[in-house]
Each structure stands twice: as structure tokens, then as C-alpha cells.
């Protein structure tokens, strides 16, 4: 087929545009995970408690708890994990409180965030640094 200059130009631009596309979908960053939850709204302080150890005995199983009275949902984020989203707790009509506990994996020392969506549509956040160590002879 004979390429016109217009065709060649279009092909070239297309190739250049393609080179700017991600090679594969990249995992969301911590900021993106939070933004997807809040819709970009400002996040305040207070009103949500995050309980996690200062030093995790083992990064494979770290007990954490969240509590935000009056919240609709709480998102937990491990800011430096390869996939930062950890869990979203959505409280239903028969929830006895807006609190929950679980155990999580942390890939290294990092800040863990708990962001609560309140009933009035506002967002609040708590943060804690959890130190994750390489075991000694725990092997």
C-alpha cells in the first residue's frame, strides 16, 4: 500500500502516543487509593482511631483495629505496600458499632492510614507508623 505523507504522520504520532501509555496497568499508589475513596475531598483529623502496634512482631500478621463512631465506612491503607489498599469496612444498618479488627501484612516499616467516611459525607483520617523488622533468628 502506498503511504501518503498524511498516513505516515498519523502512524508516527500514533506510535509516539502508544509509547506514553503504561506498558501494563500499574498498581494504584497510596494517594490514588485514598482519592478513589474520598473523591478528592479534603480529609480532616480526629474522629477515627487506628490501633496498631508500634513494632510489629512479624510483618506477616499485624493485628489492627479501627473505630469511627458515626462512620459509614472506613478504609485502611498501608502506604508503602506494593498494593496499598488493605480493606474497606462498610457498616450496614445492623452494625453494632463502627469498629472492626483484622490482621494485615506489612511489607516494611510504613505509615498505616485509616480514613473514615462520616454520615454527613465528610472524611477524617488517622495515621500511625508501624515498624516492621527483619527477624533475627525467627528465620
Amino acid at each position: 500500500m502506498k503511504l501518503t505523507r498524511r498516513d505516515a504522520l498519523a502512524l508516527g504520532l500514533g506510535a509516539t502516543a502508544a509509547s506514553f501509555l503504561p506498558y501494563k496497568a500499574m498498581a494504584a499508589t497510596s494517594e490514588e487509593v485514598v482519592a478513589a475513596f474520598t473523591g478528592g475531598a479534603t480529609v480532616g483529623d480526629g474522629g477515627v482511631t487506628l490501633t496498631a502496634p508500634e513494632i510489629a512482631e512479624n510483618g506477616n500478621t499485624v493485628p489492627v483495629s479501627v473505630d469511627a463512631p458515626g462512620a459509614v465506612a472506613i478504609l485502611v491503607v498501608a502506604t508503602k505496600n506494593p498494593t496499598p489498599a488493605v480493606a474497606t469496612f462498610n457498616f450496614g444498618p445492623l452494625a453494632g458499632s463502627q469498629a472492626a479488627s483484622t490482621r494485615i501484612r506489612l511489607s516494611g516499616t510504613q505509615d498505616v492510614l485509616a480514613i473514615a467516611k462520616m454520615a454527613d459525607g465528610s472524611y477524617v483520617q488517622a495515621s500511625q507508623t508501624v515498624k516492621v523488622t527483619i527477624g533475627g533468628c525467627g528465620g
Binding site: 512479624n58 506477616n60 500478621t61 523488622t133 527483619i134 527477624g135 533475627g136 533468628c137
Partner: peptide, 24 residues
């Protein structure tokens, strides 16, 4: 004492089989 970040026990086996957080 601590060996790097681990708190050394006496290596007692009264709790075995044991669930280890390390390998779940």
C-alpha cells in the same frame, strides 16, 4: 535478649504444635 529484632525465648516446646505468625 534481642537477636536482631527477635526477642529470644528459652526454646521451650510446651506450646507445640504452634501457629507461627511468620508462616501462618
Amino acid at each position: 535478649n534481642m537477636i536482631r529484632a527477635d526477642h529470644l525465648s528459652q526454646g521451650q516446646i510446651n506450646g507445640f504444635p504452634t501457629y507461627r505468625l511468620k508462616n501462618s
